[in-house]
Design a protein around this nucleic acid. Structure first.
Lengths: 124, 124, 124, 124
DNA sequence: GTGGTCTAGACCACG
DNA sequence: GTGGTCTAGACCACG
């Protein structure tokens, strides 16, 4: 499992950790049963507080992506491919919805918005 | 000019004020030269601190959308229709970019993302 | 005498009035002995408060450019061409000094500053 | 980082702080990644309100010169040398433009203005 | 500890 | 009346 923290970003550390682990699970880089590093181990590696890694793991467990087994460690929870695809769609939909709500609020034409969408998709 | 505040939202008060006034300017509901309510008047109406309205007005002035004139009041700045359209596109693009970055990060197919986009546009 | 007020400018009204009258005197558009409109007349014409025109006239009298004769009116004070040229130079020098102090403070090369100066002079 | 405040100046406190920190960044006295003193620390040292230092830091962040990271501190943002030189030129140009506009408004000859420029550059 | 938001006051110049 | 600056407090999330 790979987590890289950015200090030049406004995103809180715990959120960066959470987001990167989630991405590795929903993209299939980590699969059901894989063991995550312990909270203490990860805190040491990333040079952050234990509270920060615990917050990330707690949130991921609440989302159902991982399971912590006290005394044994943390593992990727079991889930179907369909569930993961659905999860991807939900995450993306949340973000896209904000942009589209704004576009409609400002009275932007659909064509205009579609053009932005296409440009962004090509160039990123 | 109409501004409505939500306390059940975690968007800061000054940001809500800023966003709503900006929308009224970029959509043409307020035009060049229109006078905004005084910072004090608006603070009273919305039952927030004077500093909260001032923060919103200061930010809008930094964006070039309004001009404050000491002793006289605050007014919608002069700007071309083309500038406003550009401003709309920029605001929407910022938001959409986050969703698209996420979609690509998660390995979502373009077709999948486009479907989400279409659904969101129809149903909102 | 011509004075035009801008409401789209941050410069206080009394300062706009003062600056425009001063310019007409130092450029020779108004000469020694010319009568200025009364403070009340000017306040009416410009649709500003009497206090605003009085502040402008008081400041110009303090600079020695005009003389107010109670009961008779306000007149351009007597002064030599050399004095006016000196006055021009002083006004310009004050402004330029700020830019040059900043340029040196930031460690800008003299060539760089001179290039900016030339460009600004050509294009304005 | 060094900031000195003048109370005998009518430049606002937050503007003095902003200007001095900006100078240290554009001159290279502080470089990318350097940590600024916390807003609270600086407020204590300078004996000003926390809000005054925050206002300065907020403005610098809006200019893109620093980045604040909640819970961690404020740091000099990453930027290229070319960007900094451009930034210097812009700051100086703004100031010089006022002097040159005035010189032309007063009908001063270009030679006269150039002489003032040279004198000021030598003697400062 | 850090920055982010917010309040309730104050005094100033300007109109 | 208007906006501009400043203070002395508060509570929050995050580390």
């Amino acid at each position: 499992m790979v987590v890289l923290l950015s200090n030049t970003d406004n995103e809180p550390l715990f959120a960066q950790i959470k987001r990167q682990i989630r991405r590795q699970i929903v993209t299939g880089a980590m699969v059901t049963g894989d063991e995550l590093p312990s909270m203490r181990r990860l805190a040491l590696d990333l040079q952050v507080s234990l509270i920060t890694t615990k917050r990330a793991y707690d949130d991921l467990e609440a989302e159902g992506l991982i399971r912590s087994m006290p005394g044994r460690g943390c593992f990727v929870a079991s889930q179907t491919g369909e569930y993961l695809l659905e999860k991807k769609r939900n995450l993306v939909q949340e973000k896209l919805a904000e942009g589209i709500a704004l576009a409609r609020d400002l009275g932007l034409e659909r064509n205009d918005a579609q053009t932005l969408f296409d440009l962004l998709w090509e160039n990123e």
